[in-house]
Each structure stands twice: as structure tokens, then as C-alpha cells.
């Protein structure tokens, strides 16, 4: 019973972070600032959702697999984000700054 409530809370927090990640992806002005909401999804969103799923799992194998998914996400997502940011910078994309607000998106 307690476990049910805890997993409800965890899944609700995870869903909130997932939605915030999606909204941030739309609202942020340029690529580099969009990466930060995407990072919320990769860590906090996925973490809380999978924690809620783990609390609902009735088999330890299921729980272990969910934990393994989270570990893989934790390893791969920063590397992918780093590679993306590095490639974009090498390609000559200039990060949006407050002073260049008038120029609009480049």
C-alpha cells in the first residue's frame, strides 16, 4: 500500500519532468539552451519514472532490468549530448546570448 503511494508520487514527478523537458524543447531560443531541458528528461524524468516502475515490479529480474535501463541511459545520454554540442560548435554555430536577442534565431 505504502509502496503503491510512493510509486504514484514517483511516476507523477517523472511525468512532470518529462513534460517540462518537452515544453522546454519548444520554448528555448536556440540549440544550446534546448539541450538543458533535454538533460532534465534524460536524468530526472527517466530516473523518477523508472523508480516508480521499479516499485511496482513484482519480480526482482524486472526490477534489475529497469535499473539496467537507467544505468545505460545514464552512460549514453551525456555522451550523445556532448558529441552533439561539440559537433555544433565545430560547425560554427554561435550560442544565443542575451545581448544578441534582437538578431533572432540564427
Amino acid at each position: 500500500m505504502i509502496l503503491d503511494i510512493l510509486s504514484w508520487i514517483s511516476i507523477a514527478i517523472g511525468a512532470y519532468f518529462v513534460l517540462v523537458g518537452g515544453i522546454g524543447l519548444i520554448r528555448m531560443p536556440d540549440l544550446f539552451s534546448r539541450m538543458h531541458p533535454a538533460g532534465i528528461l534524460d536524468t530526472a524524468g527517466a530516473g523518477f519514472l523508472l523508480l516508480g516502475f521499479i516499485l511496482q515490479a513484482d519480480d526482482w529480474l524486472v526490477a534489475a532490468k529497469l535499473a539496467l535501463i537507467f544505468v545505460f541511459l545514464l552512460f549514453t545520454s551525456p555522451v550523445a549530448t556532448h558529441a552533439l554540442a561539440h559537433a555544433a560548435l565545430l560547425d560554427g554555430l554561435k550560442p544565443w546570448t542575451k545581448s544578441r536577442k534582437k538578431d533572432g534565431e540564427s
Partner: peptide, 27 residues
Amino acid sequence: GPTVYDRILAVNHIGTQTVLLIAAMGF
């Protein structure tokens, strides 16, 4: 997305969400 990198970021994002969605579908 104005640049190709925006699109790659969005697709990567969708992929991460697909992972979570498949796990939820399993339950």
C-alpha cells in the same frame, strides 16, 4: 528545428522517450 542539430537533438529526445514508453507498455 532551424538547424540539422536541432533535429538530431529532438530525435534523440524522442528515442529516450520511446525507451520509457516501451517500459510503460510492458507494465
